Simulated scan of single mutants.
Amino acid sequence: MPLTHVCTQLKNAIRMLEHLFGSKTRYRLLRFFFHNTEKSFFVRELTRALDVQINAIRRELELLVKSTLVEETDAPGHVDQTKAGASLRKYYRLNLGSLMYPEMQALLMKAQLLDEQVFVDSIRESCGDIKLLLLTGRFAGEKDVQTDMLIVGDIKSRNLEKVIASYEKDIGFSIRYTTLTVDELYERRHMMDKFIYSIFEAKHMRVVDELDL
């Protein structure tokens, strides 16, 4: 399938989710906060991460604070309050105590599964002969793994870069990925490569596995 058609499919699926949540910015903000439940952010951090105009971010934050899903909070401990303007910044984080949190979490988890399925399908259909595609790291809630994806096969690198870049722009964070040929994977497993073994020992999802490892 042509790469342009695959990217269109990905964008259409994301538009459907945005419509469900009421606005593109609101959906992307919520998804970003749910991916960073332990962190707080000031407005300009969010505009940079999501590439959205500051007024749109402020408008949606105001609505989310009123809904109790997001709350204003003090600056994180690492922030230097002596710097100019630092004390005037408002920080925001997900409100884990909100009555709406469990329902929104369940809805966003379903939305994330759809996002990820379209993303994975895009890789399978346009990025070469994929023999193994493994999701870990951010996709599996594994903070200590040094990669988010392991992709093994005869890979079309430029197509893969474009698909991942398109997905990164929508989710607001970078994806760490590792690509190997089948021979490279077998060789590194034979050498007891610590990095490779750390991936397989961590929590992961094998969405493509033609190697039966």
Rank of each mutant, 00 (worst) to 15 (best):
K66P: 05
R138I: 12
S174G: 13
T25N: 06
Y167C: 03
R124D: 11
L211K: 07
I151R: 09
A165F: 14
L135G: 06
L30T: 02
C7Y: 13
S23K: 00
E142T: 02
D209Y: 13
L17A: 02
H190Q: 15
K83N: 14
T47Y: 02
A140T: 14
E125K: 08
S87N: 13
T136G: 05
L46P: 01
D144V: 05
I155T: 02
S23G: 01
R31E: 08
R176S: 13
Q9I: 13
A165V: 12
K143G: 04
T82I: 14
C127Y: 00
G153N: 03
L69F: 04
N55C: 15
R48M: 14
M100L: 14
S166M: 11
K169I: 09
H190K: 12
T178F: 15
Q112V: 12
Y177R: 06
H204S: 07
D183H: 06
T178W: 11
E38D: 07
L114G: 10
R59F: 05
I171K: 02
K39C: 07
S67P: 04
I130P: 00
L134T: 06
T37I: 15
M16C: 07
E184R: 03
R58K: 09
A86D: 05
E142L: 03
I199D: 04
V43H: 08
L20P: 15
L132F: 06
G137A: 03
I199T: 02
K66L: 15
D193W: 05
N159V: 02
S157C: 13
F41C: 10
T4M: 14
L180K: 10
D80Q: 07
R189I: 13
D115Q: 13
R124C: 14
K66C: 15
V182Y: 01
H190F: 15
K110C: 08
E38L: 12
F34N: 04
S87E: 08
L108G: 00
E184M: 01
I151T: 02
D121G: 02
L134I: 08
D193P: 00
K194C: 05
V163E: 13
D144S: 13
R59Y: 09
F139Q: 06
D115T: 09
Y27V: 00
L64R: 04
E45M: 01
I175H: 00
G128I: 01
N55D: 15
K203D: 07
L94Q: 03
S67A: 12
V118P: 04
A106E: 12
D80C: 06
Q53L: 09
F42G: 06
H204Y: 07
Q146L: 10
E38K: 13
L113H: 11
S98L: 07
N36V: 10
F21Q: 01
A86Y: 00
D170C: 14
G128K: 02
I155Q: 06
Q112R: 09
C127K: 06
Y197P: 15
D80S: 07
T73R: 08
K162V: 08
I57L: 04
N12A: 11
T179P: 06
S122T: 03
